[in-house]
Amino acid sequence: MDYGFLIPAIQSIIIASTPLVFAALGELVSERAGVLNLGVEGMMIMGAVVGFAVVIAGGGGVLGFAAAAAAGALMAALFGFLTLILYANAVATGLALTLFGLGLSALVGAGFVGLSADKFPQISIPVLSDLPVIGPLLFGHDIMVYLSLALAVGLTWFFKHTRAGLIVRAVGDDHDAAHSIGYNVTAIRFMAACFGGAMAGIGGAYLSIVQTPLFVENMTAGRGWIALALVVFASWRPGRVLLGAYLFGGITIIQLHIQGFGISIPSQILSMLPYLATVVVLTVISAKGSQARLGAPRALGQTFKATR
């Protein structure tokens, strides 16, 4: 067997995983502050359509991602307004946000169907990018891949070593205590939710700008839900989110390669594998009992009303 396909396969895995990394890390921050936003899919698809629209209008990829982040944050702000200020039910609002995003993106995107954007550039470092094996694996990706990795590292550090990170966690774990020592719970949660929305928007735009530079209705195809599952899977730790996303992307790509080799495993089972892996890992984590539950922010999804 020729193993030359391995390097491109790993590159495909990284591209397939990056949208999940962004969306899941965003949701992680949101949930660490206690905001359970089930609208990731809706925020992603809005990011996808807005990002693509900006690229088609000639704004370029970077501006496209910025606009996508703004669109996602705007969606999250709507969510924040409804749940944090008007005290609407978070689960229902999140689901509504997904449905709203899917519909609105289809409406906005109707004019962009059938268009194709240019390829988003990969970075090229002289000498390093040309090294065999290591070059394409480490130094040949687009800038967003490196940003997603930096985001995971940055968030780990943020939650572990900064005062701001500690405050976000405090708000997510016990909003009454955080409030009583003077933190503005609503404002902090609102900002965390908006950050989550912005990252989901970038994740969606990665699909429509980098992975397949086109826009079609419902192109996120459930990736927002996978991102949500990944956060639980990772027991709310950024490093594990990264691991989970790459595992998920890896199985997705590998099953396609296995088929190409003509190995006869029913393709429906292969398509199911990534989801099956998620279920298995969730089971394993839950079986450890209390230790895993330690990861969950204790005030996750609870409504906070300042009483005084």
Partner: peptide, 13 residues
């Protein structure tokens, strides 16, 4: 689209 693109890449690889 995402999965179709991945399949296309796998075949090209």
């Amino acid at each position: 689209p995402g999965k179709e693109a991945d399949a296309a890449k796998a075949l090209i690889d």
